[in-house]
Design a protein around this nucleic acid. Structure first.
Lengths: 314, 314
DNA sequence: TTGAAAGCGCTAACAT
DNA sequence: ATGTTAGCGCTTTCAA
């Protein structure tokens, strides 16, 4: 027992015994068993992370931020991938909760009621990430997709674009893309503008798909002077189409993506995009989870809204 | 006890009691505690995954493959990110092992001896991934980076390139990039050719960096007719440079990357690259781990070499 | 086919 | 400051 206290730095242990215990532990190569500690103690040493995808660089970077934030905390991240499937999400959350994690980090605010209840009943900090348009079960951190969409619409209007198209995720899948779309559309309406073409992508959001749809949109209506894509991958495809066909981006047509991927920075044509603080969301979400763990913590804000940054070509 | 057996489908339980147990479990909303099961039983329900990076799409896709392969196995993946730091890798592996995972998936074959010993002593399946040039602690799955580099050199030579440059990861960091470089160089030597310029990247492998270094390399030596990049991100930057400066790729100069990122497929200039089966490596690594878990399994091959695919522009 | 006993390795609570 | 007791929720082993 004294050894347990000594190694954890809990309670009072004389400096002398502390030294002895540490030495002994070292000599026999003692390694604690967090499984047993988790089962016995109040807190478990695991933290659950549930994201819709990891092959998407955006969520991958969130994971990187989480790993980073967790460094030195003694907690291990357990991850699950929902593939944008609500059923799978519910199952995953359930099986994560069975491990009695110290906290849970989940992407999105718009889980079905049953899932929300599941989260609510778990008596641990729940940190919902990537979105702030809505009410969190517990706390959330991210940014407003609605505002991001609205802002981009404003920027394109300011550049003189009037005849716009949208190319992006099928709405059923990605609620955050839907919010951006809604924000964009709202702003257009305010300016008495509307979309002239909307192409929904049901498959993967790739440059190949973006290039193909861009070609289609522009052949359907050559007067289109701006295209808003639901993300940079699609937008890059659009840029490639323009390069290949000698279209002058920024002159003949404006292209706007979302996420601010590194690769858009040095693209030989100007692409508007919104830089999202995804890595920061990851690391901060961990901070919020850890803060929620403390007993008499001065509980922080329910909603942390980080800034996105509009990146416009010269 | 009978309930435990019934719910796990272990031992003999009369169909009648089985039904009763299941019903009761359903009614009271019983959810097992895998923490306790792991502590008690021989096997734990966790599987450790150690990768050098997740913000790199390549490893992100490996994680996706792992998540996929794990689906339905009842195991939860715990991940750790080393950031290409051997000390951190050792610490991470140690803390993962403390959880008594059912198996461990680790990127790379070239851990320092101390780390190898650590892995060896753990009496669980160790699956090393992404590389087959070397000896695994237990089993490994991936492909030969040496062969990939060699193959690309052959392809560039066949296209008439003679004066080549290399732009890529600092060797200290990435042993796999080093192996590709070595393979490439070997092939050049066989053809009595050598590199005329080598630029090592110490920072991140990004398109921005790739573009800048490409400019530098070509201004240092305008006669360079082929550049091998350690990965597609850098190579894409090179492609952007060529587009921006009206260089005819495939004519004036050949560009070769590595990984076969989706985004290279539709690039408006031809980029040679090597498509790597990273997602498959992820899912297969799980299969190998699970296979190693079975008692009297017909132990599979120590080394599974998957095929890469050389993608050359028309 | 079912049950009873013991213990996995720890920690919280209560002595001393 | 240190030790003792009990128990976290399961599974393995042995007995009925």
């Amino acid at each position: 027992m004294t050894a347990s206290r000594a190694l954890r730095g809990t309670g009072d242990v004389s400096p002398e015994t502390l030294k002895k215990v540490r030495l002994a532990a070292q000599q026999i190569g003692y390694v604690g068993n967090p499984l047993a500690a988790s089962l016995s103690g109040k807190r478990s040493g695991l933290i659950g992370v549930v994201v819709p995808s990891v092959s998407n660089i955006v969520f991958a970077e969130v994971l990187a931020g989480i790993a980073d934030g967790l460094d030195g905390s003694g907690l291990q991240p357990v991850f699950g991938v929902t593939d944008y499937d609500e059923t799978r999400e519910a199952e995953l959350i359930q099986s994560m909760l069975a491990w009695h994690p110290a906290a849970l980090i989940v992407a999105g605010l718009d889980q079905p009621d049953a899932t929300r209840n599941l989260l609510q009943r778990a008596d641990i900090p729940i940190v919902q990430i990537m979105d702030t348009d809505g009410d969190p079960v517990d706390v959330c951190i991210g940014f407003s997709h609605r505002d991001a969409g609205r802002e981009m619409a404003g920027a394109l209007l300011a550049r003189g674009a009037r005849r716009m198209a949208y190319i992006g995720s099928s709405h059923a899948l990605d609620t955050r893309a839907r919010k951006r779309f809604a924000g964009f559309e709202t702003r257009l309406n305010e300016a008495a503008q509307t979309f002239f073409d909307i192409q929904f992508v049901d498959g993967p959001s790739t440059a190949t798909v973006g290039r193909g749809l861009t070609e289609q949109v522009l052949s359907d209506d050559p007067a289109i002077d701006a295209i808003y894509y639901s993300n940079d991958d699609l937008a890059i495809g659009g840029a490639y189409h323009c390069i290949a066909h000698g279209l002058s981006v920024g002159q003949d047509i404006h292209l706007a993506g979302f996420n601010g991927l590194e690769i858009t920075k040095t693209l030989p044509v100007g692409l508007a995009t919104t830089l999202t603080p995804r890595r920061q969301i990851g690391s901060k979400s961990v901070e919020m989870a850890l803060a929620g763990l403390q007993k008499n913590a001065p509980l922080g804000p329910k909603r942390v809204t980080l800034q996105t940054q509009l990146l416009l070509p010269d």
